[in-house]
Amino acid sequence: MSLDLSRREFLQGAGAAGALTLAPGVFLHAKDPEVPVTDAVRWGMLVDTRLCQEDCDACVTACNEEHNLEDLGRPETDAQWIRKLTVRDPLGGRTISLPMMCQHCENPPCVDVCPTGASFRRVDGIVLVDKHTCIGCRYCMMACPYKARSFIHENLTEQLPHAPRGKGCVESCTMCVHKVDAGENTTACAEACHKDGHQAILFGDLNDPDSEISKRIQEFGATQIRADLGLNTGVRYQNL
């Protein structure tokens, strides 16, 4: 009895913490924790590059804080799950800025090459690394067309409960799977972009034709980066 009480208290505490970070108007409809994820949904993100400001890196900062990706002052080995990419057309010099992260492919090269199966795609479309079986061979980093992955080059001690990470394993954007499973229906980067008033990143269910992300894609279309590779990415871009 007392056990049940303490568990309920804990769940309430976690729920309250989640609700605090929610944007107004976003409903919390948490997935039943006992029910496995299904392929009825495919989580994805849509980036409108016209709304993305070149001098803004709110999404990057939010991601780093959400997962405590520490800046160790070693840019060549420090982990980056999301980065701001500037793309310039040499003809005319038009410049666009966009966030680049794991594209959560339907056919991910990192999953194909992983010898132990540690790189995997969850049925709801989120590509993850099972760090319990990752041996740190880094072949996925060789294979990823987006340079989306980072290897952890040093001991870490300040991991957060919802973001386990450690030396010797490869990691990348998890599409904030802990938020998704809690039903927050957003990611740290999308949330931060929203808060800053740019609304360049939209998170949602690509399988639901009535979701905002699907509607926007239906109306305006969206591009995959390196579409030629045929990976069917879960992160799409507009106005590239």
Binding site: P75, Q80, L85, V87, D89, K147, L240
Partner: peptide, 15 residues
């Protein structure tokens, strides 16, 4: 790595 063929890329991640 070429992410955008024909374009010039730059970032904090050595693109």
């Amino acid at each position: 790595l070429v992410l955008f063929p024909g374009m010039e890329e730059s970032s904090s991640f050595y693109d």
